[in-house]
């Protein structure tokens, strides 16, 4: 009859449903139920932690993040500033994104600025000038066009982009 929901009888094209399940990925068959977020795509709005195991050898590593307590903590600003200055960029990015709303996020922000990185407020990513190319400042002085290196937190890597940078968008 006209009112019946035909998706129950003749069904629907399943490709979008399969896509929401992450199928098909490359031709290998991946298990999907181990990280099944929810029966509906609409309520699968975040990754869920799968079954995993931390070998004991992983849980008592000393000196993580140059810290002599295990697990590591950052509770002393003076000391922390010195430590933070020793970290490589990726470690700073990790601390910045993984521990929001904490002292260490502030410290890594300051350290990255010292290294000429700037945080883009809208893109919510870090960028720095590509040293190989001098940007061209716009006539009105509010922006510049040039080549920049972005740190992409989704792919966890640096990538170079042509970009028009508005000075009020960075901090």
């Amino acid at each position: 009859s006209s009112t019946i929901d035909h998706s129950l009888t003749i069904g629907a094209d399943l490709s979008s449903m399969l896509h929401s399940l992450g199928l098909p990925r490359d031709n290998k068959r991946h298990r999907i139920l181990d990280t099944f977020q929810s029966p509906w795509a609409e309520t699968s709005r975040s990754e869920v932690q799968p079954r995993f195991f931390i070998p004991s050898s992983f849980s008592n590593i000393s000196n993580v993040l140059q810290c002599n307590t295990t697990p590591p903590t950052f509770n002393n600003i003076e000391l922390d500033q010195q430590r933070v200055a020793l970290f490589q960029d990726e470690t700073l990015f990790y601390l910045f994104y993984k521990h929001p709303g904490t002292v260490i996020q502030e410290l890594t922000y300051l350290e990255l600025r010292k290294r000429n990185w700037r945080f883009h407020k809208i893109l919510k990513t870090w960028l720095t000038k590509d040293p190989m190319m001098e940007p061209i400042v716009a006539a009105d002085g509010f922006s510049e066009r040039g080549s920049y290196v972005f740190f992409d937190p989704q792919r966890w890597e640096k990538c170079q982009r042509e970009f028009i940078l508005f000075y009020n968008a960075i901090m």
Binding site: L95, Y97, P100, G101, T102
Partner: peptide, 18 residues
Amino acid sequence: QKPLSLNHPTSIFFPSEP
């Protein structure tokens, strides 16, 4: 979870979810 670092008000533009 043993906090890695103490809470601290950071910029509203910073990401607030890990």
